[in-house]
């Protein structure tokens, strides 16, 4: 079980709990604005871009090569960027705060 906090671009804070599946699916199921997940979670659409709170990068890990490549030319990319379809929900993610990218 992991409690995950999303902060949307309208500064809305949504706290949800998940047990399995991807963080993208959790966000989509809870209508988190700005996370669309159009490709269903296969790193093809980049509509699931979030910034991990710097202090939580340890829990999520860094973006993989394909995530970095997909985001390379994105105006809002940062060293904390992740495509959250690549984050599997597990106890390890408990407490992470993710800001939805613009």
């Amino acid at each position: 079980m992991a409690k995950i906090t999303f902060i949307t671009s309208d500064k809305e804070t949504i706290i949800v709990e998940g047990t399995s599946g991807s963080v993208m699916q959790l966000a989509v199921d809870n209508n988190v604005q700005g996370i669309d997940g159009d490709c269903g979670g296969v790193c093809s659409c980049a509509t699931c871009h979030v910034h991990v709170a710097p202090e939580h990068v340890e829990k999520t890990g860094k973006a993989s090569e394909i995530e970095q490549d997909m985001l390379e030319l994105d105006d809002n990319v940062s060293e904390y960027s992740r495509l959250c379809c690549q984050l599997e929900i597990s106890d390890q993610l408990d407490g992470v705060v993710l800001t939805v990218a613009k």
Partner: peptide, 10 residues
């Protein structure tokens, strides 16, 4: 080659 894909898109 996601890099080629995003470059091409741009």
């Amino acid at each position: 080659n996601a890099k080629a894909y995003v470059l091409g898109t741009k």
